[in-house]
Nucleic acid binder design. Sequence first.
DNA 1: TACTTTCTCTACTGCTTTAGTAGAGATTAG
DNA 2: CTAATCTCTACTAAAGCAGTAGAGAAAGTA
Lengths: 161, 161
Amino acid sequence: MQVSAKVDYGMRALLFLAQSYQEDPSALVKGDAISKGQTIPIKFLEGILTELRNAGFIISQRGAVGGYRLSRAPQKISLAEVIRVLDGPLAAVRGLRPENVNYEGSAAHLQDVWVGVRTALRDVLENVSLADVVSGEFGTQLTELLSQPDAWVSRPAYESN
Amino acid sequence: MQVSAKVDYGMRALLFLAQSYQEDPSALVKGDAISKGQTIPIKFLEGILTELRNAGFIISQRGAVGGYRLSRAPQKISLAEVIRVLDGPLAAVRGLRPENVNYEGSAAHLQDVWVGVRTALRDVLENVSLADVVSGEFGTQLTELLSQPDAWVSRPAYESN
DNA sequence: TACTTTCTCTACTGCTTTAGTAGAGATTAG
DNA sequence: CTAATCTCTACTAAAGCAGTAGAGAAAGTA
């Protein structure tokens, strides 16, 4: 799973807005403040914020006292929703959704694997909200994943040459 | 997680070889047979097979009775290994491994999420072998994921416009 | 009204990756 | 020595990714 710059920036922007929301749900945050607060190129960020507004996650206002704010409580926005809006389906095989790929012969059951992978991703991302990330307190699901012995250790793909 | 054509083709090629291996571990399968058996463009496939050989998964032989075969039992090759060789790390954020990204302020704990996602992917893909896919009989991990109510149902990212 | 601030919209650009294709060369068996 | 098959280098077209530019529209303020 490759998390694109767009998703990474978009998620950080929403987390920034989530924090502001918890202090004052109606407060507007300027694009410039998000850009500087999270080190995101302003023009790129603006495009992402527009997408997030079209998807209904945030509300924007123009003018001297303008800015952005979440349209609902950060507890009610899951990371899965955000990723789907900015990057499309959580899992896809050659551009197709897992249930739509057609395999033959010895590969017949490969489809089950991709469907399982998607479910695994959902189990994590649908159950983590913006508020969870801001607070750093996650449910048992993610907490257990993080407590696995080498969760933080990378696995090299050792090429033989 | 986007499964690329390369990974999809490579996996299917290996599954084809895995089936042959189970009938006769030393039998050589021609590239042409894999290409036709799994409907993969021959020249594209050849490049993928070369990578798989470099990574040690398969052995090749040239000449009139040439072909390809697995270098070890299909029970000993996990899907995670194959993906890492053909496509790189299971999870990455803007090209970086999850443990190497640096977040600030309200996004600080976002790193935990990506590490958790990687672990979730590992839990599935490291525990499924080529032999498992050929037989269609998976361990409890994947079996449970597939038995979830709407594992096969897609979740639309409903855009408000 | 005029002005400033801030979001909005369209368009563009450079770069990299993806998914292939082409063809000559190297091995091997018979 | 010939036919079959894998191997290696090079090339290409299209798409996606990351980011930039600038004019336009809305909102508050002097």
